[in-house]
Design a protein around this nucleic acid. Structure first.
Lengths: 254, 254
DNA sequence: CGCTAGCTTGATCTCACTCAATAGCAGTGG
DNA sequence: CCACTGCTATTGAGTGAGATCAAGCTAGCG
């Protein structure tokens, strides 16, 4: 089996330290299968019972809830290293759907293997629990974002979050960040229409904060963008150095 | 020590079954201290490191995030039986504040005791993890509520959620539900101004769905209210009978 | 009895939505 | 090679839900 299945990105640059080599090996051993999914694919449908959880190795995925009027509302976005539906291990049934934005590679971990981990590896279990709590913290920030911020601020905040998470896994250098989603997807994530997302992106461009083009975000002024989005990366529980990079500071303030 | 410290309400009427008597005893034994808090008290401040978690025994509490403009945004509400900040056990530092709405009684559980539970009681640990995932599921629904629903629907949805959770712990009969919060608090929970909450409550009254008065919600038409709020209790992971009661059905549909 | 917190109602304003039209661009097939 | 199709991006004009501002009202309480 390959030694590089995405396990190495788990918890990278987070508070509380990295996993030990043994723990990574244990996780790796828990993987039953590697699967590739096409873009726009629904992996788990709302209400489904599942007996395994999915670790995202490559690509971008999201969680969404379908509204009565047929609209889709994104409640979370996932980047490589995220254990997307680890919460299905305690929950067993999902209250939302999970799908791909891009083509994706995932590692499938059966819950039976997680049970064995839970019995035998207390620290690893504690860190996996932490992982699921990271998602909850992001959910809370999304609630806050929707409650408190206007359209421009919301998009800025969203871009800062994605960029911070991409920095943590080494996929962004803080100036150029992958953003493999359409303006419609962006709207579904920030609760805006695609039309308004377009206007907001123009504003960000005009203010020399950020240029979104193709599937890439060019961040011209990260401190400015973070300020616009009132972005404080505390909720991502990054280690101090990474948190500083996430708001465009190379050195911490005195 | 008293045998009734709120432990008996934990996970009551949820999917996955009740805790065993032994598990309840173990949890009870983990309680270091019972504390009473006045209304309007901030128990944990955003960013604080904590070494213990808090089980709500009596009263109503909430989690909130302070915005730059000084406004407060509620990201979660808690009723007795909720292990409010159990997520602090893996996270150690909270990304939001926790406070009381009413006077409250809480049981304090040190993380060292939770560590012992995690090593020795796999099933109980799994259920505690489940408990934290319930909060995450509620967060997701709040994101959805803010994204998808208008003011009337949002308030209706919120009332249905509180009512369902009160039903689960035996504090509501489905027609009369405690709602110990002002219209301002309600607004901070649904992202509306107190003025608009007031107008919305009038509409609910005029439609004979619900009358909110004092610190009590009189629900006149629970199926109607649930329909208005597009409320589907699936995300609360209640057992089937309780879920049916939460939307005003005494019998399940064929 | 006066004070304060919470509730109620009215008038006006604004941000983001809706509807609509156009342009660009990739893929597909004749 | 071009016509055709479908998806994404862009811009304009009009609309509306909920915010804001302002003023009374009510009730509990020292």
């Amino acid at each position: 089996m390959s030694s590089s299945i995405g396990v190495e990105k788990i918890l990278r640059n987070r508070e509380g330290g990295e996993l030990s080599q043994e723990e990574r090996d244990v996780l790796q051993g828990a993987v039953r299968e590697i699967r590739t999914l096409p873009a726009g694919h629904v992996a788990v449908r709302q209400g489904e019972r599942v007996e395994h959880s999915t670790l995202l190795v490559d690509g971008v995925m999201m969680r969404f809830i379908d509204a009565r009027d047929g609209r889709r509302h994104v409640v979370g976005v996932h980047v490589p290293g995220d254990f997307i539906d680890l919460h299905a291990y305690p929950l067993k049934r999902l209250d939302h759907s999970v799908g791909t934005l891009t083509a994706a590679t995932v590692a499938v971990v059966p819950h039976s293997a997680l049970e064995r981990i839970q019995v035998n590896y207390a620290h690893l279990t504690h860190r996996l629990w932490f992982l699921t709590m990271l998602d909850a913290a992001m959910h809370r920030q999304w609630v806050y974002r929707l409650s408190s911020l206007n359209a421009l601020e919301r998009v800025a905040h969203f871009l800062c979050e994605i960029n911070a998470r991409m920095i943590a896994i080494g996929a962004s250098d803080g100036r150029s960040c992958p953003l493999p989603m359409t303006q419609l997807d962006l709207g579904e994530s920030c609760s805006l229409t695609n039309v308004h997302v377009n206007r907001v992106l123009r504003q960000l461009r005009e203010r020399n904060l950020c240029v979104v083009r193709g599937h890439q975000a060019e961040i011209l002024d990260l401190p400015g963008l973070a300020d616009t989005g009132q972005f404080d990366p505390g909720y991502l529980y990054l280690n101090p150095e990474t948190a500083a990079r996430a708001v465009g500071q190379t050195r911490s303030q005195p």
